[in-house]
Computed example of a mutant assay.
Amino acid sequence: MIEVDGSAGGGQLLRTALSLALCTGTGFTMQKIRAKRSKPGLMRQHLTAVNAAATIGNAYVEGAELGATTLRFEPGVVVPGEYRFATGSAGSATLVLQTVLPPLWRCDAPSRLRLEGGTHNPLAPSADFIADTYLPSLAKFGIDAGVVLERPGFFPAGGGILHATVSPAPALRHAEFIERGALQSIDAIAMLSGLASGIGERELQAVAKRLQLSQNALHLRQVRPSLGPGNALLIRVRHEQHAETFTGHGERGLSAEKVAERLADEAKAYVRGSACVGEHLSDQLLLPMALAGSGAFVVAAISDHLQSNARLIEKFLPVEIDWAEIAGGWRVTVAS
């Protein structure tokens, strides 16, 4: 039984612990869950991830309640199959998906998932990030998984529906994300639900001006029927060997131009740099690399999420995760 201090990070520590408990058969207790957040303890998306992990892994759980700051999780046998998980709110469905994928790809049969909740939330990977960046990155390890977005779900209404499939991948390949190759394309997508199209058009024009994009690279999507107001702005940057997806969200009191300029600057900084992997993907690559036993990538900066996730993974698996500064960023290495 592993003891985990949840105050060292946010919900990501809990999700990683759940995934690794099911992958290794090692239970854990976590204290001070999300202790440094404005609302400590388990929120709906975290509770859904706990219940989803317990369901697929026949686990014994103590403390699975809203607001709980202590959790005990004892895994059983992971069973592939068809599952449906709903956050019951705009809580992130994609974070629940990332929790259950690793134990399911280690099974000997495929699984199908229906996830309901938020698909385009602040502070969580968007469904587009999952489809265009995360899953293609997993494919380099030999992981065959796919997602189909049936209906987007925005904060605060939620109501999104995401379908996912995952095939068996019991033995992962070594993978490296060092060189990204030549720039191939940049395009922008403005998604709107229950809001005037003019908002998205202003966002796209601001992005085009900031990144020098042609009109052919701009795409406007109206979500119908609308379950409530929502706006997500996406910028996809494709290089020969890697693709990154940047996501911004409309906010009350923040102009469309400001939303677009802030996101465009984030994408521009990535393009002007030389690092292969973006900040948000970097900590998410650690788990598959650790399960593979090795791997490496180059990122522009070492985030707090990456550091806390690395130290937690080392508690469950016989790997060492290190990083060293190099020209243009940091090289992160996973070795057994």
Score class of each variant (00 low, 15 high):
F154Y: 10
I161M: 12
A243M: 10
A300V: 07
L263C: 07
P225N: 06
A290T: 02
R224T: 02
T119Q: 13
R15V: 01
L135M: 05
G198R: 12
P75D: 09
A8E: 13
V148H: 13
V237T: 08
R252F: 09
A310R: 07
A208S: 15
G158V: 01
S111R: 08
A93M: 10
A53E: 00
R151P: 00
G41F: 02
R224I: 01
L101D: 00
A296C: 13
L101N: 00
G329I: 03
L213W: 00
K209T: 11
R15F: 04
T29P: 02
G253A: 15
T165P: 07
M30E: 03
T70Y: 08
S137C: 07
L317S: 11
G194C: 11
S19F: 05
A124P: 03
A175G: 02
Q215Y: 04
V77Q: 08
S92E: 01
A208E: 02
R202D: 05
F28Q: 11
T48F: 05
A243S: 15
A264V: 00
L14N: 03
P122N: 06
H163C: 11
K36W: 00
G67D: 00
G293S: 02
E176D: 13
V61R: 07
S137D: 08
S294K: 14
S126F: 01
P168F: 08
L286I: 03
E116S: 11
F297E: 15
A145N: 02
F155L: 11
D128A: 13
S19D: 06
C23E: 04
E314A: 07
D187P: 03
T165S: 14
R84D: 05
L138W: 01
P75A: 14
V100K: 00
D265T: 13
G253Q: 14
G329F: 01
V277G: 07
V319Q: 06
V271H: 05
M1P: 13
L162H: 01
G10H: 03
R84E: 12
V237K: 01
A145F: 01
E82H: 13
T24R: 04
A327Q: 09
L213N: 01
A260T: 04
P229S: 15
I326A: 10
F246P: 03
V148I: 13
D187N: 14
G181M: 04
G41S: 07
P40H: 03
L218M: 09
L227H: 12
G63C: 05
T245H: 08
A86L: 07
Q215L: 14
T24N: 08
A109K: 14
G63S: 08
A21P: 11
V298P: 06
A8F: 12
H46Q: 11
A59C: 09
L195V: 02
D265N: 12
L286Y: 08
G25V: 09
S274R: 07
S274N: 10
G91P: 07
L192P: 00
G328K: 12
M191T: 08
E261G: 10
E176I: 00
V277E: 14
H46T: 08
L192R: 08
I178G: 13
L95E: 01
R37C: 11
T119F: 10
D283E: 14
R112A: 11
L97Q: 03
D144I: 11
A335Y: 05
E62Q: 15
R34T: 07
E150G: 13
E257T: 12
L183T: 04
